[in-house]
């Protein structure tokens, strides 16, 4: 291909990637080493508020930001090195917990609590998504043609539903005296509260993610199954290979690049899990790294937000994803070179 043609095709995509991915990434990276603070003053303010029957006035000293002549808050920005990272990681408290001989304490620190859950979430759902996706693909592939269309449609439904809505619907099935909780209660004849302890919420969140993502794996695997070499399969049958052996030695090796692809996508997706925390309101019990970043960014009632810590936490999340992806990327790279 001529370079000009190549550039014309790739150019717009590169431009958008720089604009929407690279540039924000650089800003976040810089912000994570910076601290933007309003310049504050302490002033005495008289506030009159309604009372019964007459108004009440109080005079207090309040901390207020200074405004410039245009009415904007005056801020200073300073380079603080790794201070924001230290505030997110809280390594001093980690060291303290270890030296006290109570390493369990580490998991009460937001970042480590989030990391623990995010990793469990990612690594537990990964084999389940691949397994369930493959199982549905094999099942559909062995169905009579007449039923395939309908089954494919039904199994794709969870994937079509907007993530937050999906999470909310599962939450409503179980919260309080939800339909499924009531059913379980009458079946097991005991009181069940799915949202009262961490592990049940965790189980629901894992279930939800597998339910939501498995159809994607299914579609990809199903497409892959159509390209399995029938001659190889036939010769395997003639050689007396059982169904399991055909799966193990013919089909799975053939699908391996697709399995790596699904794993890559799923690791990236699951590591930045967020909808589950919001959908299941699991903040009290389980949080994810992405939610932590969001929480830093959310302004409180007085308008304070922690941009620097949010940036640091976002960078740490990205570093985490890269570390998780290294083995898979190395494998793809080897295949690529070998092929």
């Amino acid at each position: 291909m001529k370079f000009r043609t190549f550039a014309a095709f790739v150019g717009p995509s590169i431009f958008l990637m720089v604009l929407f991915i690279a540039a924000p990434l650089v800003t976040v990276f810089l912000q994570s080493f910076q601290l933007n603070q309003p310049i504050v003053e302490r002033v005495e303010v008289e506030t009159c508020t309604p009372g019964f029957p007459a108004q009440k006035c109080v005079t207090e000293v309040k901390t207020q930001p200074l405004l410039d002549e245009n009415g904007n808050v005056r801020t200073t920005s300073t380079w603080v090195g790794f201070e924001s990272y230290a505030n997110v990681l809280q390594l001093d408290r980690v060291a303290e917990a270890i030296s006290d001989g109570r390493p369990g304490r580490i998991l009460t620190i937001d970042f480590w609590k989030a990391l623990r859950f995010t990793l469990t979430f990612t690594l537990v759902t990964l084999p389940l998504v691949i397994g369930v996706g493959l199982a549905i693909a094999l099942a559909v592939n062995n169905l009579t043609r007449a039923l395939r269309g309908q089954i494919i449609f039904v199994s794709l439904l969870p994937f079509i539903i907007t993530p937050v809505i999906g999470a909310l619907s599962i939450r409503w099935l179980f919260i309080g005296d939800g339909i499924l909780t009531s059913l379980l209660e009458s079946w097991l004849d005991r009181d069940i509260s799915m949202f009262a302890q961490g592990w049940t919420i965790e189980a629901m969140m894992l279930f939800y993610r597998v339910w939501h993502v498995a159809p994607f794996a299914f579609v990809v695997f199903y497409a892959g199954l159509q390209t399995v070499n029938q001659d190889t399969l036939e010769s395997a049958i003639i050689d007396g290979a059982s169904r399991w052996e055909r799966l193990r030695y013919v089909i799975i090796p053939h699908l391996m690049p697709l399995i790596v692809f699904i794993a890559l996508i799923h690791l990236m997706d699951a590591y930045r899990a967020f909808e589950e925390v919001v959908g299941f309101s699991s903040q009290a019990h389980r949080i994810t790294l992405q939610w932590l970043t969001y929480d830093y960014l959310t302004p409180d009632d007085s308008g304070n937000r922690s941009i620097s810590r949010a940036s640091a936490s976002a960078m740490l999340t990205m570093v985490g994803i890269v570390i998780l992806l290294i083995p898979l990327l190395r494998r793809s790279w080897r295949d690529h070179r070998g092929g």
Partner: peptide, 28 residues
């Protein structure tokens, strides 16, 4: 008292909201 709405209180409210659950779940 009226809710003490100040910058400090906003920060305190957030800190309380994030850290108190661990007490009720029995972690601390």
């Amino acid at each position: 008292a009226s809710y003490p709405s100040t910058s400090q209180m906003g920060l305190m409210h957030t800190a309380l909201g994030n850290e108190l659950p661990a007490f009720f779940t029995g972690e601390r």
